[in-house]
Computed example of a mutant assay.
Amino acid sequence: MKEVVRERTLIRLSHYQAVLEGAGIPTFIRNEALAHLEVPIPTFCPALCVVDDQDYDRAIGLLHESAEQAAKASTEDCLCPACGEINPRSFDLCWNCGAELA
C-alpha cells in the first residue's frame, strides 16, 4: 500500500480513484471518514492509496495525464456540427441546440 495523493475533500479523490480503477489499478481511500472534520488536520486528510506498491509509478503517470487532458479540455472550444455554435471542449452536447459534439 502506497499513498498516491492526499486531499481535503473526497470529490477530487473520488475522481482520481475512478481514473485509476478504470485503468485496472486497485485503490482505496484511507481516512475517508475524517473528510468531514470541521478543521482538517493535514496528517489525517483523506488519501488515495494504491493497493500494490508496484502500481505507484503508473498511477502517478495516469493522474498527471488526466490533469493535462482536463486542463487542455478546459481551454479549447469546439464548433457544434449542427448549428455552428461555439462550445467548451468539455461539453458533450451543444448548449444551444442540444446536438452531440464530436
Rank of each mutant, 00 (worst) to 15 (best):
M1P: 12
M1S: 09
M1G: 10
K2M: 10
K2N: 09
V4H: 05
V4D: 00
V5N: 02
R6M: 05
R8E: 06
R8D: 03
R8N: 09
R8Q: 11
T9D: 15
L10A: 08
L10P: 06
I11R: 12
I11S: 10
I11G: 09
R12L: 11
L13A: 10
L13V: 07
S14G: 13
H15N: 08
Y16T: 03
A18D: 10
A18K: 14
A18S: 10
A18W: 04
A18M: 11
V19M: 08
E21A: 12
G22K: 04
A23R: 03
A23W: 02
A23N: 12
G24E: 07
G24I: 04
G24Q: 06
I25E: 06
P26H: 02
F28N: 09
I29P: 08
I29E: 04
I29F: 02
I29M: 08
I29K: 07
R30I: 05
N31F: 11
E32T: 02
E32V: 04
E32D: 06
E32Y: 07
A33G: 09
L34N: 14
A35G: 08
H36R: 15
H36S: 14
L37Y: 09
L37K: 08
E38P: 03
V39N: 10
V39R: 13
P40Y: 05
P40A: 10
P40N: 12
I41Q: 11
I41E: 09
I41H: 12
I41M: 12
I41V: 11
P42A: 06
T43P: 00
T43V: 15
F44T: 15
F44M: 14
C45G: 00
C45V: 01
P46N: 07
P46Q: 05
P46L: 04
A47V: 09
A47F: 03
A47H: 05
L48C: 08
C49Q: 03
C49F: 01
V50N: 06
V50M: 03
V50I: 09
V51A: 14
D52K: 09
D52T: 04
D53N: 14
D53C: 03
Q54I: 00
Q54V: 02
D55I: 01
D57H: 15
D57Q: 14
D57A: 12
R58S: 13
R58K: 15
R58M: 09
A59G: 08
I60T: 14
I60N: 09
I60H: 11
I60M: 14
I60Q: 15
G61Y: 05
L63M: 10
H64W: 07
H64L: 12
S66K: 04
S66Y: 09
A67T: 04
A67C: 01
Q69V: 13
A70H: 13
A70Y: 07
A70N: 10
K72P: 01
S74W: 11
S74G: 09
T75P: 00
D77W: 06
D77N: 13
C78K: 15
C78T: 12
C78F: 05
C78Q: 12
C80H: 00
P81G: 01
G84D: 02
G84K: 03
E85M: 03
E85C: 01
N87K: 01
N87S: 05
P88I: 01
S90Y: 10
S90Q: 08
S90M: 06
F91Q: 15
F91K: 14
D92Y: 07
C94N: 08
C94A: 14
W95F: 13
N96M: 13
G98A: 03
G98L: 00
G98P: 01
A99I: 00
A99R: 01
E100I: 13
E100T: 13
L101H: 05
L101R: 02
